[in-house]
Design a protein around this nucleic acid. Structure first.
Lengths: 147, 147
DNA sequence: CTGGTTGCAAAACGTTTGCAACTCT
DNA sequence: AGAGTTGCAAACGTTTTGCAACCAG
Protein backbone atom coordinates (compact mmCIF):
# COMPACT_ATOMS: atom_id res chain seq x y z
CA UNK A 1 0.00 0.00 0.00
CA UNK A 2 2.74 2.43 0.87
CA UNK A 3 4.55 0.61 -1.90
CA UNK A 4 1.95 1.98 -4.21
CA UNK A 5 3.76 5.19 -3.40
CA UNK A 6 7.20 3.76 -4.16
CA UNK A 7 6.22 2.17 -7.43
CA UNK A 8 4.10 5.06 -8.65
CA UNK A 9 6.95 7.44 -7.99
CA UNK A 10 9.52 5.29 -9.77
CA UNK A 11 7.22 4.83 -12.72
CA UNK A 12 7.31 8.58 -13.18
CA UNK A 13 11.03 9.01 -12.60
CA UNK A 14 10.48 10.55 -9.18
CA UNK A 15 12.15 9.64 -5.93
CA UNK A 16 10.83 8.13 -2.78
CA UNK A 17 11.91 10.46 0.00
CA UNK A 18 11.32 10.42 3.72
CA UNK A 19 9.31 13.64 3.39
CA UNK A 20 6.89 12.23 0.84
CA UNK A 21 6.27 9.14 2.89
CA UNK A 22 5.80 11.21 6.03
CA UNK A 23 3.38 13.60 4.38
CA UNK A 24 1.31 10.70 3.07
CA UNK A 25 1.33 9.10 6.51
CA UNK A 26 0.22 12.36 8.08
CA UNK A 27 -2.65 12.75 5.63
CA UNK A 28 -3.74 9.21 6.42
CA UNK A 29 -3.44 9.77 10.16
CA UNK A 30 -5.30 13.07 10.29
CA UNK A 31 -7.80 12.39 7.50
CA UNK A 32 -8.65 16.02 7.01
CA UNK A 33 -5.85 18.48 7.66
CA UNK A 34 -4.61 21.72 6.15
CA UNK A 35 -1.02 21.97 4.91
CA UNK A 36 -0.12 23.81 8.11
CA UNK A 37 -1.61 21.04 10.23
CA UNK A 38 0.18 18.47 8.14
CA UNK A 39 3.64 19.92 8.88
CA UNK A 40 2.78 19.82 12.55
CA UNK A 41 1.61 16.23 12.26
CA UNK A 42 4.78 15.22 10.45
CA UNK A 43 6.91 16.84 13.13
CA UNK A 44 4.89 15.37 15.99
CA UNK A 45 5.43 11.98 14.42
CA UNK A 46 9.16 12.55 14.62
CA UNK A 47 9.58 13.43 10.97
CA UNK A 48 10.92 16.58 9.40
CA UNK A 49 9.50 18.69 6.63
CA UNK A 50 9.10 22.32 5.72
CA UNK A 51 5.79 23.85 4.79
CA UNK A 52 7.14 24.34 1.29
CA UNK A 53 7.84 20.65 0.98
CA UNK A 54 4.42 19.76 2.31
CA UNK A 55 2.87 21.80 -0.47
CA UNK A 56 5.09 20.19 -3.06
CA UNK A 57 4.52 16.71 -1.69
CA UNK A 58 0.77 17.14 -1.61
CA UNK A 59 0.85 18.20 -5.23
CA UNK A 60 2.74 15.04 -6.14
CA UNK A 61 0.58 12.77 -4.00
CA UNK A 62 -2.52 14.24 -5.54
CA UNK A 63 -1.16 13.67 -9.05
CA UNK A 64 -0.53 10.05 -8.09
CA UNK A 65 -4.14 9.74 -6.98
CA UNK A 66 -3.25 9.00 -3.37
CA UNK A 67 -4.71 12.10 -1.76
CA UNK A 68 -7.40 14.64 -2.59
CA UNK A 69 -8.29 18.06 -1.27
CA UNK A 70 -11.53 19.82 -0.44
CA UNK A 71 -12.29 23.53 -0.32
CA UNK A 72 -14.39 24.42 2.68
CA UNK A 73 -14.97 28.10 3.27
CA UNK A 74 -12.30 30.74 2.65
CA UNK A 75 -9.25 29.31 4.38
CA UNK A 76 -6.75 26.63 3.49
CA UNK A 77 -8.10 23.46 1.86
CA UNK A 78 -8.10 20.18 3.75
CA UNK A 79 -6.36 17.09 2.42
CA UNK A 80 -7.77 13.59 2.64
CA UNK A 81 -6.59 10.10 1.77
CA UNK A 82 -8.15 9.22 -1.57
CA UNK A 83 -9.98 6.34 0.13
CA UNK A 84 -11.96 8.72 2.33
CA UNK A 85 -12.97 11.12 -0.37
CA UNK A 86 -16.57 10.05 -0.75
CA UNK A 87 -18.76 12.65 0.88
CA UNK A 88 -20.20 16.09 0.22
CA UNK A 89 -19.60 18.95 2.63
CA UNK A 90 -22.32 21.46 3.36
CA UNK A 91 -21.24 24.66 5.04
CA UNK A 92 -23.25 27.36 6.82
CA UNK A 93 -22.06 30.83 5.86
CA UNK A 94 -23.46 32.21 9.09
CA UNK A 95 -21.80 30.13 11.77
CA UNK A 96 -19.26 28.27 9.65
CA UNK A 97 -20.51 24.87 10.73
CA UNK A 98 -19.78 22.05 8.29
CA UNK A 99 -21.81 18.88 7.83
CA UNK A 100 -20.82 15.86 5.81
CA UNK A 101 -23.52 14.18 3.82
CA UNK A 102 -23.50 11.22 1.47
CA UNK A 103 -22.22 11.80 -2.04
CA UNK A 104 -25.57 10.33 -3.14
CA UNK A 105 -27.00 13.79 -2.56
CA UNK A 106 -25.42 14.87 -5.83
CA UNK A 107 -25.73 11.60 -7.73
CA UNK A 108 -28.58 12.82 -9.91
CA UNK A 109 -26.88 16.14 -10.52
CA UNK A 110 -23.75 14.27 -11.55
CA UNK A 111 -25.75 12.15 -13.96
CA UNK A 112 -27.51 15.17 -15.42
CA UNK A 113 -24.20 16.93 -16.07
CA UNK A 114 -22.66 13.82 -17.54
CA UNK A 115 -25.61 13.18 -19.83
CA UNK A 116 -25.67 16.77 -20.99
CA UNK A 117 -21.99 17.43 -21.68
CA UNK A 118 -19.94 14.44 -20.58
CA UNK A 119 -18.93 16.52 -17.56
CA UNK A 120 -17.53 14.46 -14.67
CA UNK A 121 -18.69 16.07 -11.47
CA UNK A 122 -16.25 15.96 -8.57
CA UNK A 123 -18.95 16.26 -5.97
CA UNK A 124 -16.71 16.44 -2.92
CA UNK A 125 -14.24 19.03 -4.13
CA UNK A 126 -16.03 22.13 -2.92
CA UNK A 127 -18.44 22.50 -0.04
CA UNK A 128 -21.99 23.55 -0.81
CA UNK A 129 -22.85 26.86 0.86
CA UNK A 130 -25.97 28.15 2.51
CA UNK A 131 -27.50 28.94 5.87
CA UNK A 132 -28.40 26.48 8.60
CA UNK A 133 -31.84 26.72 10.15
CA UNK A 134 -30.66 28.70 13.16
CA UNK A 135 -28.66 31.26 11.21
CA UNK A 136 -31.51 31.68 8.74
CA UNK A 137 -33.88 32.44 11.64
CA UNK A 138 -31.48 34.94 13.13
CA UNK A 139 -31.06 36.69 9.85
CA UNK A 140 -34.79 36.98 9.23
CA UNK A 141 -35.22 38.63 12.61
CA UNK A 142 -32.34 41.04 11.95
CA UNK A 143 -33.30 42.05 8.45
CA UNK A 144 -36.99 42.15 9.10
CA UNK A 145 -39.46 40.16 6.98
CA UNK A 146 -40.27 43.08 4.65
CA UNK A 147 -36.73 43.84 3.71
CA UNK B 1 -33.31 51.87 -8.54
CA UNK B 2 -30.10 53.60 -7.48
CA UNK B 3 -32.31 55.27 -4.89
CA UNK B 4 -32.79 51.88 -3.36
CA UNK B 5 -29.15 52.40 -2.51
CA UNK B 6 -29.70 55.84 -1.03
CA UNK B 7 -32.68 54.88 1.08
CA UNK B 8 -31.24 51.59 2.27
CA UNK B 9 -28.08 53.34 3.35
CA UNK B 10 -29.93 56.07 5.24
CA UNK B 11 -32.17 53.54 6.93
CA UNK B 12 -29.04 52.07 8.46
CA UNK B 13 -27.39 55.35 9.33
CA UNK B 14 -24.88 55.00 6.54
CA UNK B 15 -23.92 57.56 3.96
CA UNK B 16 -24.36 57.72 0.25
CA UNK B 17 -20.95 58.41 -1.19
CA UNK B 18 -19.64 58.72 -4.70
CA UNK B 19 -17.53 55.60 -4.17
CA UNK B 20 -20.45 53.40 -3.16
CA UNK B 21 -22.51 54.51 -6.09
CA UNK B 22 -19.59 54.00 -8.47
CA UNK B 23 -18.84 50.53 -7.15
CA UNK B 24 -22.46 49.50 -7.52
CA UNK B 25 -22.53 50.93 -11.04
CA UNK B 26 -19.35 49.01 -11.90
CA UNK B 27 -20.79 45.75 -10.61
CA UNK B 28 -23.88 46.32 -12.70
CA UNK B 29 -21.84 47.23 -15.75
CA UNK B 30 -19.41 44.31 -15.58
CA UNK B 31 -21.82 41.72 -14.17
CA UNK B 32 -19.07 39.42 -12.99
CA UNK B 33 -15.89 41.13 -11.87
CA UNK B 34 -13.30 40.65 -9.17
CA UNK B 35 -12.54 43.49 -6.73
CA UNK B 36 -9.42 44.27 -8.73
CA UNK B 37 -11.43 44.49 -11.94
CA UNK B 38 -13.99 46.63 -10.20
CA UNK B 39 -11.44 49.32 -9.22
CA UNK B 40 -10.33 49.40 -12.82
CA UNK B 41 -13.91 49.69 -14.02
CA UNK B 42 -14.61 52.51 -11.58
CA UNK B 43 -11.53 54.38 -12.76
CA UNK B 44 -12.26 53.78 -16.42
CA UNK B 45 -15.69 55.23 -15.82
CA UNK B 46 -14.09 58.41 -14.54
CA UNK B 47 -14.65 57.62 -10.88
CA UNK B 48 -12.13 57.26 -8.12
CA UNK B 49 -11.77 54.55 -5.55
CA UNK B 50 -9.06 52.56 -3.82
CA UNK B 51 -9.04 48.80 -3.70
CA UNK B 52 -9.62 49.04 0.04
CA UNK B 53 -12.77 51.04 -0.52
CA UNK B 54 -13.98 48.62 -3.15
CA UNK B 55 -13.73 45.80 -0.63
CA UNK B 56 -15.54 47.85 1.99
CA UNK B 57 -18.20 48.99 -0.44
CA UNK B 58 -18.83 45.49 -1.69
CA UNK B 59 -19.32 44.33 1.88
CA UNK B 60 -21.90 47.04 2.44
CA UNK B 61 -23.65 46.46 -0.87
CA UNK B 62 -23.84 42.78 -0.15
CA UNK B 63 -25.32 43.43 3.29
CA UNK B 64 -27.94 45.61 1.61
CA UNK B 65 -28.79 42.77 -0.72
CA UNK B 66 -27.77 44.66 -3.85
CA UNK B 67 -24.84 42.51 -4.90
CA UNK B 68 -23.70 38.92 -4.36
CA UNK B 69 -20.42 37.12 -4.86
CA UNK B 70 -19.48 33.73 -6.25
CA UNK B 71 -16.40 31.63 -5.61
CA UNK B 72 -15.10 30.14 -8.81
CA UNK B 73 -11.82 28.29 -8.59
CA UNK B 74 -8.98 29.43 -6.36
CA UNK B 75 -8.69 33.11 -7.15
CA UNK B 76 -10.65 36.18 -6.19
CA UNK B 77 -14.43 35.87 -6.08
CA UNK B 78 -16.58 37.58 -8.68
CA UNK B 79 -19.30 40.05 -7.79
CA UNK B 80 -22.68 40.18 -9.47
CA UNK B 81 -25.73 42.39 -9.27
CA UNK B 82 -28.25 40.60 -7.05
CA UNK B 83 -30.64 40.45 -10.03
CA UNK B 84 -28.25 38.23 -11.97
CA UNK B 85 -27.54 35.83 -9.19
CA UNK B 86 -29.71 32.99 -10.32
CA UNK B 87 -27.45 30.40 -11.88
CA UNK B 88 -25.06 27.65 -10.92
CA UNK B 89 -21.47 27.72 -12.13
CA UNK B 90 -19.76 24.52 -13.16
CA UNK B 91 -15.99 24.66 -13.47
CA UNK B 92 -13.53 22.28 -15.12
CA UNK B 93 -10.46 21.76 -12.95
CA UNK B 94 -8.48 20.81 -16.02
CA UNK B 95 -8.86 23.78 -18.34
CA UNK B 96 -10.56 26.19 -15.95
CA UNK B 97 -13.53 26.69 -18.23
CA UNK B 98 -16.71 27.81 -16.48
CA UNK B 99 -20.25 27.09 -17.62
CA UNK B 100 -23.40 28.62 -16.21
CA UNK B 101 -26.40 26.37 -15.85
CA UNK B 102 -29.84 26.93 -14.49
CA UNK B 103 -30.26 26.96 -10.73
CA UNK B 104 -32.92 24.31 -11.32
CA UNK B 105 -30.07 21.83 -11.47
CA UNK B 106 -29.84 21.99 -7.71
CA UNK B 107 -33.51 22.52 -6.93
CA UNK B 108 -34.03 18.97 -5.69
CA UNK B 109 -30.83 19.04 -3.70
CA UNK B 110 -31.97 22.28 -2.11
CA UNK B 111 -35.29 20.73 -1.21
CA UNK B 112 -33.64 17.64 0.24
CA UNK B 113 -31.38 19.73 2.45
CA UNK B 114 -34.23 21.95 3.55
CA UNK B 115 -36.47 19.00 4.39
CA UNK B 116 -33.72 17.26 6.31
CA UNK B 117 -32.36 20.13 8.43
CA UNK B 118 -34.02 23.37 7.42
CA UNK B 119 -30.79 24.21 5.59
CA UNK B 120 -31.15 26.98 3.00
CA UNK B 121 -28.89 26.12 0.10
CA UNK B 122 -27.25 29.05 -1.65
CA UNK B 123 -26.80 27.18 -4.89
CA UNK B 124 -24.90 29.86 -6.76
CA UNK B 125 -22.35 30.77 -4.12
CA UNK B 126 -19.68 28.26 -5.05
CA UNK B 127 -18.98 26.70 -8.41
CA UNK B 128 -19.33 22.95 -8.77
CA UNK B 129 -16.04 21.32 -9.76
CA UNK B 130 -15.16 18.47 -12.06
CA UNK B 131 -13.69 17.67 -15.43
CA UNK B 132 -15.14 18.54 -18.79
CA UNK B 133 -15.35 15.79 -21.40
CA UNK B 134 -12.16 16.84 -23.18
CA UNK B 135 -10.04 17.12 -20.07
CA UNK B 136 -11.34 13.80 -18.79
CA UNK B 137 -10.30 12.16 -22.07
CA UNK B 138 -6.86 13.71 -21.93
CA UNK B 139 -6.38 12.57 -18.40
CA UNK B 140 -7.35 8.99 -19.16
CA UNK B 141 -4.82 8.85 -21.93
CA UNK B 142 -2.09 10.34 -19.73
CA UNK B 143 -2.72 8.13 -16.72
CA UNK B 144 -3.37 5.00 -18.70
CA UNK B 145 -6.55 2.95 -18.22
CA UNK B 146 -4.97 0.56 -15.69
CA UNK B 147 -3.68 3.30 -13.39
C1' DC C 1 27.74 11.14 -10.22
C1' DT C 2 23.63 13.71 -11.40
C1' DG C 3 19.17 15.08 -11.69
C1' DG C 4 15.36 15.17 -8.59
C1' DT C 5 14.41 17.17 -3.98
C1' DT C 6 14.68 19.97 -0.01
C1' DG C 7 14.56 24.29 2.79
C1' DC C 8 15.19 28.92 3.43
C1' DA C 9 14.02 33.48 2.39
C1' DA C 10 11.49 36.33 -0.36
C1' DA C 11 7.83 37.38 -3.42
C1' DA C 12 3.15 36.90 -4.85
C1' DC C 13 -1.73 36.96 -4.14
C1' DG C 14 -6.06 38.36 -2.05
C1' DT C 15 -7.83 40.52 1.88
C1' DT C 16 -7.99 43.16 6.28
C1' DT C 17 -6.73 46.76 9.55
C1' DG C 18 -4.71 51.12 12.01
C1' DC C 19 -4.87 55.62 11.57
C1' DA C 20 -5.03 60.40 10.05
C1' DA C 21 -7.42 63.19 6.76
C1' DC C 22 -11.71 64.04 4.92
C1' DT C 23 -16.92 64.55 3.79
C1' DC C 24 -21.75 63.63 3.97
C1' DT C 25 -25.76 65.10 6.57
C1' DA D 1 -19.86 69.72 14.46
C1' DG D 2 -19.62 64.88 14.43
C1' DA D 3 -20.09 60.33 13.04
C1' DG D 4 -19.23 57.80 9.05
C1' DT D 5 -15.95 57.16 5.15
C1' DT D 6 -11.77 57.22 2.60
C1' DG D 7 -6.94 55.96 1.30
C1' DC D 8 -2.45 54.87 2.35
C1' DA D 9 0.71 51.71 4.16
C1' DA D 10 1.41 47.91 6.62
C1' DA D 11 -0.01 43.36 8.33
C1' DC D 12 -2.23 39.21 7.38
C1' DG D 13 -2.77 34.15 5.90
C1' DT D 14 -1.92 31.16 2.19
C1' DT D 15 0.69 29.64 -1.65
C1' DT D 16 4.54 29.97 -4.99
C1' DT D 17 9.26 30.68 -6.52
C1' DG D 18 14.60 31.38 -6.87
C1' DC D 19 18.43 29.33 -5.54
C1' DA D 20 22.08 26.79 -3.14
C1' DA D 21 22.79 22.62 -0.58
C1' DC D 22 21.47 17.90 -0.49
C1' DC D 23 20.53 12.96 -1.31
C1' DA D 24 18.25 8.88 -3.71
C1' DG D 25 19.17 5.91 -7.39
Amino acid sequence: MSDALASQLRRRGMRLTAQRRQVLDAVRATRHATPEQIVEAVRSAGGSSSLTTVYRSLEVLEALGLVRHVHIGHGAPTYHPAEHYDHVHVRCNGCGRVESVSADLLAEVARALYDADGFRLDAGHVALAGLCAECADTKERTDGPTG
